[in-house]
Design a protein around this nucleic acid. Structure first.
Length: 583
DNA sequence: GAATGTTGCGCC
DNA sequence: AAAGGGCGCAACATTC
């Protein structure tokens, strides 16, 4: 059974099952209770334009749904997938009320500004993410519109090259949208005091507004002295580069890896300064004030936010939390963190994707890199890692590029898969993940560069530029198939874990409720996701059951994508009070 | 003075 | 030690 939800204006909401008796129109404030009742009675798949329009409101009232279909995210996948190309030519177009997906904007063609964002924003709940758009600002869809679009999308999925794979992708993407909303509502438990201790140990006491921390000022003075440049602004790349060269340090930029090459008394304080400056500006006191509210980091996750299907964030920088501040991630009293990451996910995905028997054999144990050494392909684990990353990223030089050919001889099918993806991209064509997410086409400027090189009056420089641009795009598509399929594995992992956690609950008389809000205070819940890693906030008495569920979900994700293919996806899993306690 | 581009660095 | 993929963000520099 499915039930669609849409706004009808003036704070009213229509809700309806196209084939059944459940048709209602209610005030917004009565929606959570109604959804809760229908969820309990029918466990429907909820069909809506955009999960971000509805999930925050429901979660704020403690209401969770098990399944949904996010028409915006699924529509974006179907609009690009090569797996439905033929059917799409014959199907109706995406309706105008359905906005594009988060990763659909072409690289060099900025999206046109939305007509009336402010006017539309008022329709949404206050706690909804700020940048929700209604597409072109036209009328919201009717229930019939939603049902028709849902039917259109399901028909496209049924007509896909692998209908089961596409249906799985749409379900996983929609589940991801629910998880993203839930992560934001629950928040990542954050100990402000612990974070402040880290800052003070590194930077000294919090400076007055407009001042830099003492430790940074000291280091800046040392740099100016060592470079004999008393008026140098250390924060200015241009200024700094001039001063470095004047002091006889032959660098082409002020990047850390280049500075490290030189032996000069200015280098050490400069590198220390840059490290502290980064901590201060990215995760300093100002960040704490802005982002840590009520013991929680509530970052905005953008499901499907990147071309490959990996998520992005908007605000809070939750996907770039530096290791030094992770000690501030601390479970509530009576609760624990179950931290799990899929080790060596991408090479394992490559092995399974390519059905490369030799590489799959290496991926059967816990350490794929070690197995490559044991198979005699390279001499050290470090070399195995660098070679594999080089193969997936398209390295051509350095140690990595040198080792790749040896990998190719040992694992020809895996290498053929990524090489083929690279050639497809170099030709300006799209590649597609296992479940059916396709890469974008290169920007018009790319095509123009290629056309210029093929013209009658092409210069050697034109041809060089075109070859370089083609190889760049080839590296992108080479990586796309692996990174994108790994993202699908991770989505399936979470989609499988979510209902398992929802089925658990805090035993009576057990620890206090968590501070994660009414939807999560009495059950284990996801609080963090980072590409191939997740954190569950769990009552202490349930950590064992949660760990089992996390492992079973990882195994389930492997089966969903690859059937019984002989590649394992082992987890590194820890049960801790603080994130710092993990490797 | 606001918008846009570049650089550098944090994460996977 | 260096350089291959995907990102977001802050700061500075440049342009309008």
């Amino acid at each position: 059974m499915r039930i669609a939800i849409t706004a009808t204006g003036a704070g009213r909401v229509a809700i309806g099952d196209p084939d059944g008796p459940e048709r209602h129109e209610v005030d917004r404030e009565h929606l959570p209770a109604l959804v809760a009742r229908l969820e309990a009675e029918h466990a429907p798949r909820w069909v809506w334009r955009d999960t971000r329009e509805w999930a925050p409101l429901l979660l704020a009232h403690g209401v969770r749904v098990a399944r949904c279909h996010d028409l915006r995210l699924c529509g974006a996948i179907l609009a690009w997938s090569t797996a439905v190309a033929t059917a799409r030519d014959e199907a109706p177009a995406r309706p105008e009320w359905l906005p594009p997906g988060p990763a659909e904007a072409p690289v060099d063609e900025p999206v046109a500004p939305v007509a009336s964002v402010a006017a539309h924003a008022a329709l949404f709940e206050l706690d909804a993410p700020s940048e929700i758009r209604s597409g072109d600002g036209s009328r919201p869809p009717s229930l019939a519109d939603l049902d028709a679009e849902h039917d259109r999308q399901l028909a496209l999925a049924d007509a896909a090259d692998s209908p089961g794979a596409m249906r799985l992708l749409l379900a996983a993407e929609s589940a991801g949208a629910l998880v993203a909303a839930e992560l934001r509502t629950a928040g990542l438990p954050w100990d402000r005091g612990e974070h402040e201790r880290v800052l003070e140990a590194a930077l000294g006491p919090r400076p007055a507004p407009g001042r830099k921390p003492d430790r940074m000022e000291e280091l800046a003075r040392a740099v100016r002295e060592a470079l004999d440049a008393p008026s140098l602004n250390v924060d200015s790349h241009a200024d700094l580069l001039r001063a470095l060269r004047a002091a006889g340090i032959g660098v082409g930029s002020t990047a850390r890896w280049e500075l490290r090459e030189h032996d000069h008394p200015a280098i050490e304080p400069l590198l220390a300064y840059k490290r502290l400056a980064r901590l201060w500006s990215a995760n300093g006191w100002a960040w704490l004030d802005e982002w840590i509210v009520d013991r929680r980091l509530r970052a905005e996750y953008v499901a499907g936010g990147t071309a490959t299907g990996r998520w992005a964030t908007s605000g809070g920088g939750a996907l770039q939390l530096p290791k030094v501040v992770r000690g501030a991630v601390t479970a509530d009293e009576g609760w624990s963190l179950v931290v799990a990451d899929a080790s060596q996910l991408e090479p394992r995905v490559l092995a399974a994707l390519a059905r490369d028997p030799a590489m799959a054999a290496a991926g059967r144990g816990r350490d794929l890199y070690r197995a490559i050494v044991d198979a005699g392909v390279v001499e050290s684990r470090d070399e195995a890692k660098v070679a594999l990353l080089g193969a997936m990223y398209g390295a051509t030089s350095g140690d990595s590029g040198r080792l790749v050919p040896r990998l190719g001889r040992a694992y020809p099918r895996a290498m053929a898969l990524v090489d083929d993806a690279a050639r497809t991209g170099e030709a300006g064509r799209r590649v597609t993940t296992l479940l059916g997410r396709s890469s974008p086409l290169p920007p018009t400027s790319w095509h123009e560069t290629q056309a210029r090189a093929n013209g009658v009056d092409a210069t050697a420089a034109d041809e060089r530029r075109a070859r370089s641009a083609a190889r760049d795009w080839g590296r992108f598509t080479r990586n796309f198939v692996v990174q994108g399929t790994a993202a699908e594995w991770a989505l399936c992992w979470m989609a499988s874990l979510r209902p398992r956690l929802a089925a658990m609950s805090l035993p009576p008389g057990a620890p206090p409720a968590s501070a994660s809000g009414p939807a999560f205070e009495r059950m284990p819940h996801l609080v963090y996701f980072l590409h191939d890693e997740l954190i569950v906030h769990a009552p202490e008495g349930l950590t064992g059951a949660v760990a089992d569920a996390v492992r079973e979900s990882a195994a389930e994700a492997g089966r969903l994508l690859f059937g019984e293919a002989p590649v394992e996806f082992p987890l590194d899993l820890d049960i801790v009070r603080s994130y710092a306690a993990v490797s």
